[in-house]
Computed example of a mutant assay.
Amino acid sequence: MEIVDDIENCTPPEVQETAKLTTLNLLPQKSRKKYELSYKMFIDWCRTKKTNSFSENVLLAYFSELAEKYKSSSLWSQYSFLKSTLSIHNNINIETYPKLRAFLKRKSEAYQATKSKTFTPMEIDEFLSNAPDEMYLATKVALIMGIMGACRTSEIHAIKVNDIVDINKTMLVTIPVTKTKNVRKFTITGKFYNVVQKYINLRPPNVSTNSLFLNYQKGKCTCQNIGVNKISKMGKEIANYLKLPEAEKYTGHSFRRSSATILVDAGADITALKRHGGWKSTTVAEGYIDTSMKNKMDSANKIINAVQASSSSVGNTTENKEITNTNVDVKSLPFTIVNYGTVNVYVHNKT
Results as ranks from 00 to 15, higher is better:
Asp166Tyr: 08
Asn210Pro: 04
Asn162Leu: 08
His276Phe: 14
Lys220Tyr: 05
Ile262Val: 11
Lys191Pro: 05
Lys179Ala: 07
Leu172Trp: 05
Thr180Trp: 04
Asn240Thr: 15
Ala266Thr: 10
Asn240Leu: 15
Phe192Pro: 10
Lys274Arg: 13
Ile262Cys: 06
Arg256Trp: 05
Met171Tyr: 12
Leu214Val: 00
Thr187Ser: 15
Val264Lys: 06
Cys221Asp: 06
Lys179Phe: 07
Asp166Cys: 09
His157Asn: 14
Lys160Val: 01
Ser154Val: 14
Phe255Ile: 09
Gly252Met: 09
Val196Lys: 05
Tyr250Thr: 05
Ala239His: 05
Ile226Val: 09
Arg275Gln: 13
Asn162Trp: 07
Ile159Val: 12
Val195Ser: 09
Leu242Trp: 00
Thr189Met: 13
Lys140Trp: 07
Ala272Arg: 07
Val228Arg: 10
Thr251Ile: 07
Leu263Asp: 03
Lys185Arg: 15
Asn182Glu: 14
Asn182Gly: 09
Ile226Gly: 07
Asp269Ala: 04
Val177Ile: 15
Ala142Gln: 14
Gly146Cys: 01
Tyr250Gln: 07
Pro204Arg: 07
Glu246Ile: 09
Ile147Cys: 00
Glu237Tyr: 14
Thr139Ser: 06
Thr222Arg: 04
Ala268Pro: 01
Tyr216Arg: 02
Ile262Met: 10
Asn206Val: 03
Ile175Val: 12
Thr139Pro: 04
Asp265Gly: 09
Arg184Lys: 13
Ser258Lys: 02
Ile147Pro: 07
Ile156Tyr: 07
Val183Phe: 01
Arg257Ala: 13
Thr209Cys: 11
Asn206Thr: 08
Gly227Phe: 04
Cys221Gln: 15
Cys221Tyr: 02
Tyr216Gln: 01
Leu212Phe: 06
Ala266Gln: 11
Leu273Cys: 01
Thr222Ala: 06
Met171Trp: 08
Val177Cys: 10
Gly252Tyr: 08
Gly267Pro: 09
Leu172Cys: 10
Gly219Asn: 04
Lys233Tyr: 13
Lys181His: 14
Lys249Trp: 06
Glu155Cys: 03
Asn194Ser: 15
Asn215Met: 08
Gly146Ala: 02
Leu242Ala: 01
Ser232Val: 08
Lys198Ser: 14
Tyr199Cys: 04
Ala150Trp: 03
Tyr199Gln: 04
Pro176Phe: 02
Leu172Lys: 12
Asn210Gly: 12
Asn194Lys: 14
Glu237Phe: 08
Val264Leu: 10
Thr251Val: 08
Ile188Lys: 05
Ser258Phe: 03
Val207Gly: 04
Ala268Thr: 00
Leu143Thr: 12
Pro204Thr: 09
Ile231Leu: 09
Leu242Ser: 02
Pro205Asp: 14
Thr174Ala: 05
Thr180Tyr: 05
Leu143Ser: 07
Ile167Arg: 12
Ile156Ala: 02
Lys274Thr: 02
Pro204His: 12
Lys169Gln: 13
Pro205Gln: 13
Asn229Cys: 07
Ile238Tyr: 00
Lys160Pro: 01
Asn225Ala: 08
Leu212Val: 00
Cys223Pro: 00
Val161Lys: 12
Gln217Leu: 11
Gly278Arg: 01
Thr178Lys: 03
Ser154His: 12
